[in-house]
Design a binder for these strands. Structure first.
Length: 907
RNA sequence: GGACGGCUAGCUCAGUUGGUUAGAGCAACUGGUUUACACCCAGUAGGUCACAGGUUCGAGUCCUGUGUCGUCCA
């Protein structure tokens, strides 16, 4: 074995072996419980980020743990076609060649995009393999696969037939950069420093009188059709029915009254631009005002804006029109103003509210989706996201699902050629095109990407084809066991998958009929949802490509190993909190692996390895009469650790799991047990027993760690002889009770009292080390110690004296009747312990130290005494707390006396 | 404007239903290559638990308010 663990070779070799042995295939084995996870499909052309590392490490931990527990596990991988993102990338590449998608035409463009996808796509999947992800790669799914596409189209048709899908002329969020409509969820509100312009409009009926109106968007004045006031606003009550002159492209416009006007904003008068503002649109509809559309799809002004402005880009037009207003004396005031502006999530440009004909979806199963979470059929971890989820569902708006893109699932709607498209009589909506296809033309649009990925848990498992569902095990693996994702897509994806599952899984219900409660558990797509935190950089900024602050996970893997990266990232991932990334933690992950490697190496160097393939065989090597307190204590701590880990996994407390294992492995096992057993392994009487205990501990440590660090644990599993040819993957660490039972077949009974005793011994050892260290004697093994103690305590000490001296590094531990004079001392659970020094003691420094301790102890004794004398405490506090306080008092009083004695012995 | 979350050692964070003297890792400092590991070991120091009130025998923990940072929704 190498002195330092070398992950690269091990990881590549073992991953190949696991694939070769088909360890990750999700098999339908009805005699076993199923455990399934569907991966949140990354963008097909994306690359691995730290967010993916976190997310997928967690999924892998869950999958591997379930495999250890003997479940039949399916972790289903795949990728998302990511409509806008991918199309944008492909178009950008085309642009570099001087071409546009229009030059290619739809079909050529899609072929081109597919080539692009096949070339750049799937990189991320290879990266996941490097990370060690145990996905069933034979079931890899892409959302544009033929089967998957059929499912998407089928869902659309089903929803249309049930009346959930409709086409309508509506205000939508328009992205002038991507040239498509977006859903509300794809609009990011960002606070912006804008200018609030106060503009005057002349009142026609009262020449010379003006109304002042505030707006941040003066370029839309050319689209104004009215001014509006609140009907209850006393300032403007007599303006109703009068008219004003539009200051740009002068034209008379009515003044109307509408309750939607905000009285307190600006002057309380609102300009109405119906075609370019959602609220204005609603008001205009109520008042039967004309729509004046002055913007082109790309955000430039059109002919209706007038010859002076036509063709001008929207933000230039804003300046030009403001200048014109100023020139004409119609601009009263400009002030800085912070407002929220909606940006396109993908293109990051301000969106334009625009009147447009689109396909909309009225969400199915909203009530049932709420119920599924409220009634606990779906559990969120952490729970507080439930509130966010329910709030969104309570305020849910219809979903604009058509996108003016080519990369995606083309909407299965055909229109009669030459007829009105808005009339449903001229529609053919079906999975199959009409038979007289040349009489029809298909809708040019594609579906929102999320309108395909919301079917992910269903469509990846064969839905809606009966045969495919059987083959892929929909009934066996669905609902999936857990979903692991970020809270940023709770609306985009999580909520929508829940609604899709409720609507489509199982037998159909009419849209006005609720799904019966009894069917909710089998229709929901997953039982648990674990929301990860968002990974931030060391300054707390969100990691992003544009900031360049995200490290490349592959670099980290090369530097620290996949196991090191996984361990590191998991140890800093508190439940539901954002994660501050730090490379130091990844380094710690690597160090952890190295420590594990070395303690295993040490074990293999101590003696020939025995047959370790079955736990019982190891247990039988233990001789009950040789078993000492160290042995008992480490086994008891192992029992505790097994149970704690089990419990913490149930609550998805991953970093607590890691901490628990770390403590047992590093502090209890390496720092204490291994050190203490060094002497005993040298003696033939205790050697076998001691090594057997080491083997039991190592075996369970490997099993506990395997989900987190799969490579090194598998490697050591073989090297330490636990394997007997079999991978660690199918072995469970088991519970504490199971371990106790196995131990009992060797006739071993553990006494939990030794835990306290060992705790005291460890305190003693720490004190003794400290006595030495403070005098720079830590490398001197010839120092002697003396102590004064009762018979009972002396008895314990004599039993442990050997390991105490080994671990402390001392030559003798002598019991004396009276405190020796002039020696430095510390008070321990066993009384005062004296460092036997013949020379060089700084008496005044020793005194000062003991004096300080004395003050501290007196303070504690005082406060506990006061507490016990307080009748309110003794009458109200529970008995065990009072008992604890009494105990504390006795203990500290004893210490106090010892300290006094040690102090007086100094002089 | 509303909702949620954070504020504990220099840094990153634990701290379960209120109950002994508030913990860990990293960093710092001191010492150390003793038959695993310097990717290591031992030791030391470091905290008015954001602030102000309140409930309680007892508050980091519960309640109210304030500040501050962040996220989401308007």
């Amino acid at each position: 074995m190498d002195k330092a663990y070398q992950p690269t070779e091990v990881e590549d070799r073992l991953y190949k072996k696991w694939i070769r042995e088909k360890c990750f295939l999700g098999k339908i084995e009805t005699d076993k419980p199923a455990y399934s996870i569907v991966i949140p499909p990354p963008n097909v052309t994306g690359v691995l980020t730290m967010g993916h590392v976190l997310n997928n490490t967690i999924q892998d931990i869950l999958a591997r743990r379930a495999r250890q527990q003997g479940k039949s596990v399916l972790w289903l991988p795949g990728t998302d076609h990511a409509g806008i993102a991918t199309q944008t990338k492909v178009e950008r590449a085309l642009k570099d060649e001087g071409k546009s998608r229009m030059d290619l035409g739809r079909e050529n463009f899609i072929d081109h995009a597919k080539l692009w996808r096949d070339k750049h796509g799937g990189i991320i999947l290879e990266q996941l393999k490097k990370l060690g992800c145990s996905c069933d790669w034979e079931r890899n799914v892409h959302t544009l696969d033929e089967d998957y596409s059929r499912a998407v189209i089928s869902a659309f048709v089903k929803l249309y037939k049930k009346g959930y899908v409709y086409r309508g002329q509506r205000m939508v969020n328009w992205c002038p950069s991507s040239l498509t409509a977006l859903s509300d969820e794809e609009v990011i509100m960002k606070p912006q420093e804008s200018i609030l312009y106060k503009i005057r409009y002349q009142i026609l009926e009262t020449p010379g009188a003006y109304l002042e109106v505030s707006t941040t968007r003066p370029e839309t004045i050319v689209g104004d059709v009215a001014l509006a006031i609140h009907p209850d606003d006393p300032r403007w009550i007599n303006l109703q029915g009068k008219h004003v002159m539009r200051p740009i492209n002068p034209q008379a416009m009515p003044i109307i009254a509408d309750e939607a006007v905000e009285k307190d904003f600006g002057t309380g008068i609102l300009k109405i631009t119906p075609a370019h503002d959602r609220l204005d649109f609603e008001i205009a509809q109520r008042h039967d005002l004309p729509m004046l559309e002055i913007l082109n799809p790309d955000g430039t002004l059109n002919e209706l804006a007038g010859p002076d402005y036509a063709g001008m880009e929207r933000f230039s037009a804003r300046k030009v029109i403001a200048d014109k207003l100023r020139e004409d004396g119609n601009l009263i005031e400009e002030e800085k103003h912070q407002n929220n502006v909606g940006f396109s999530e993908r293109a990051d440009v301000p969106i334009e509210p625009r009147l447009s004909e689109q396909w909309f979806l009225k969400y199915p199963r909203v009530e049932e989706a709420k119920k599924a979470v409220k009634d606990g059929h779906i559990k969120f971890y952490p729970k507080r996201w439930e509130k966010t989820y329910l709030h969104w569902l309570d305020n849910i708006q219809d979903w604009c699902i058509s996108r003016q893109l080519w990369w995606g699932h083309r909407i299965p709607v055909w229109y009669k050629k030459g007829k009105m498209r808005s009339d449903p009589a001229n529609w053919h909506i079906s999975e199959k095109p009409p038979s007289d296809i040349d009489q029809w033309e298909q809708d040019e649009d594609v579906l929102d990407t999320w309108a395909s990925s919301w079917l992910w848990p269903l469509a990846t498992m064969g839905w809606p084809e009966e045969e495919a569902m059987g083959e892929k095990g929909l009934d066996y693996f669905y609902p999936t066991s857990a979903l692991v994702t970020g809270p940023d897509i709770i609306f985009f994806w999580v909520a929508r998958m829940i609604m899709a599952g409720l609507e489509f899984k199982g037998r159909p219900y009419k849209s006005d009929k609720a799904i019966p409660d009894s069917e909710i558990p089998e229709r929901i797509p997953f039982n648990d949802v674990y929301f990860t935190g968002i990974i931030r950089d060391e300054q707390g900024r969100k990691m992003s490509k544009s900031l360049g602050n995200s490290p490349d996970p592959l670099d980290l893997i090369a530097k620290y190993g996949a196991d090191g990266l996984r361990h590191g990232i998991m140890s800093i991932a508190p439940k539901g909190q954002d994660i501050r990334f730090s490379e130091e933690r990844i380094e710690q992950g690597r160090n952890f692996c190295n420590k594990l490697w070395n303690v295993s190496r040490f074990r293999s160097m101590s003696a020939q390895l025995e047959d370790n393939s079955i736990l019982e065989l190891i247990v039988l090597r233990i001789q009950g009469d040789v078993l000492n307190e160290d042995d008992q204590a480490i086994l008891l701590r192992l029992v505790e650790t097994l149970d704690q880990v089990e419990k913490l996994y149930g609550e998805y407390e991953f970093n607590a799991v890691l901490q628990t294992i770390y403590r047992f492995f590093w502090n209890d096992f390496c720092d204490w047990y291994i050190e203490a057993s060094k002497a005993r392994v040298q003696e033939s009487a205790s050697k076998d027993t001691c090594l057997a205990i080491q083997d039991i501990c190592l075996r369970h440590i490997l099993l506990l760690l395997h989900p987190v660090t799969p490579f090194i644990t598998e490697e050591l599993w073989f090297l330490l002889g636990f394997a007997n040819g079999n991978s660690i993957q199918g072995m469970a660490p088991g519970t504490g009770a199971e371990l106790l039972e196995k131990l009992s077949i060797g006739g071993l009974q553990l006494d939990t009292n030794v835990l306290d005793e060992m705790e005291h011994i460890r305190e003693l050892v720490t004190s003794m080390r400290s006595l030495k260290a403070d005098r720079n004697l830590s490398n001197n093994r010839e120092v002697a110690f003396s102590y004064v103690a009762s018979d009972e305590k002396a008895d314990i000490l004599s039993r442990h004296s050997k390991s105490i001296l080994t671990t402390v590094g001392g030559s003798a531990l002598n019991r004396v009747d009276v405190a020796p004079t002039g020696m430095p001392a510390l008070v321990t659970p066993f009384g005062a312990i004296y460092l036997d020094l013949t020379v060089g003691v700084d008496l005044s420094a020793e005194k000062a130290r003991l004096q300080k301790e004395l003050v501290n102890l007196e303070k504690i004794v005082q406060s506990v005494k006061a507490k016990l004398n307080n009748q309110a405490f003794t009458s109200k506090a529970p008995p065990e707390i009072i008992e604890g306080a009494r105990h504390q008092l006795l203990e500290n009083e004893a210490k106090l006396n010892e300290t006094k004695e040690a102090l007086s012995a100094l002089t």
